[in-house]
Structure formats: structure tokens, C-alpha cells
Computed example of a mutant assay.
Amino acid sequence: MKGTLVLTWFLMVCLSKVTVQSQYYSQSLPYDTKAVKVTHLHFFLHETLGGKNPTAVEVAQANISSLPFGTLYAIDDILKIGPEDKTEVIGNAQGLALMVGGNTTTGVMYVDFGFTTGKFNGSSISLFSRNPITETEREVAVVGGRGKFRMAKGFALLKTYFLNATTVIVDFNVTVIHY
């Protein structure tokens, strides 16, 4: 019994002297600046707000007022090369848009723009930004990507091309910085 107590005391003293060397990061290494790419994209987002096949639907609304404030939309919009219905589909934009701002119609959007054809097939860019949708021209942030746009950052200039009660077409000019 005395030997067990001595051994326990000895182990406790030894363990108290051990320093813990855990880190939540590894050594920072510089990127090869020659590997940085800048890609410019131009496409049109086509959104349908009603009818048989809507691409944006309301999934929740705050019950405190009749304003759109607090309304959440799920979107699965179509990306095309041009603004016309018959132009080539190059992908889709899937995500969420939350209406914020009491007196103005501003959305906060998180949307993944996935490309399904061409050079960027299987790649996407992610936008997460405030989007003042009542302004004809606006800028939103590119915060990430996957595939050929891995570790993307940049910005998108948006311009409303067409708008009515059931259809929205937005012109996207995107500058993507990626590796």
C-alpha cells in the first residue's frame, strides 16, 4: 500500500512537469504569387417567382408585420450565357436570401453558383453578401469556391436587366481571384 502511494505521488509530480505542446495551427507558408489567377465571368441569373416551376420560394416569414423584413427565401435559379430564354444554360445558383432592412428592400444572400458546362464544369463560386436589390446596380462579395475556383475571393457587379411580378433577370460581371 505504501509503495502504491509513493508510486502515485511520483507519477503526479512527473506529470505536472510535462508541458503540453498542442497548437491549433501549423507553420504559415507563403503562397506562390505566380499561381494566383484572375478570372472574369459574365452571365445572367434567371429567377422565376411564381407559376408552375418557381426558382425562388418563400420558406419562412416573420409574423410581426406585413413588411418583407424577416422573410427567408430558398433559391435554385438558372444561370445562362444571355438574358434571353433560349440561351445556353451554364449552371445554377442555389442558396438562401433573407430580407432585411425595415424601410428598404435589402437581402442578405448566401448563394453557391455552380457551373455545369464548359471550362468550369463542376466548379463553383460562393457569394455571401448584403444585396440591396432595389438598386439597379450593386456589388456583392465572392467569399469562396470549389473546383477550379478553390480558395476564391473577389466581387460581382450586379445589374438588374429585367424585372416584373414573376421574373427577374440579373446581369452578373464577376471578378474571381483564385489559385
Results as ranks from 00 to 15, higher is better:
135 E>T: 01
122 G>W: 08
155 F>K: 15
79 L>P: 02
94 Q>G: 08
122 G>E: 08
119 K>N: 13
116 T>M: 10
82 G>I: 02
156 A>P: 00
103 N>A: 12
116 T>G: 14
110 Y>T: 14
134 T>C: 00
135 E>G: 06
118 G>R: 09
156 A>L: 01
97 A>I: 11
132 P>Y: 00
115 F>K: 04
114 G>K: 03
70 G>N: 06
92 N>F: 03
91 G>R: 00
96 L>F: 15
104 T>I: 02
81 I>T: 15
110 Y>S: 14
156 A>H: 06
66 S>C: 05
69 F>K: 00
106 T>A: 03
68 P>N: 11
138 R>S: 14
91 G>P: 02
85 D>I: 01
143 V>F: 02
67 L>T: 15
141 A>E: 10
97 A>F: 05
116 T>A: 14
87 T>I: 10
98 L>T: 12
143 V>H: 01
123 S>I: 09
107 G>D: 07
150 R>L: 15
115 F>N: 02
130 R>F: 07
125 I>N: 00
81 I>R: 10
84 E>F: 00
95 G>H: 03
112 D>F: 03
86 K>V: 07
77 D>V: 02
78 I>C: 09
157 L>S: 13
83 P>V: 00
134 T>L: 07
106 T>S: 10
90 I>W: 01
152 A>G: 12
111 V>K: 01
104 T>V: 05
115 F>Y: 07
71 T>S: 15
149 F>V: 10
71 T>W: 01
96 L>N: 14
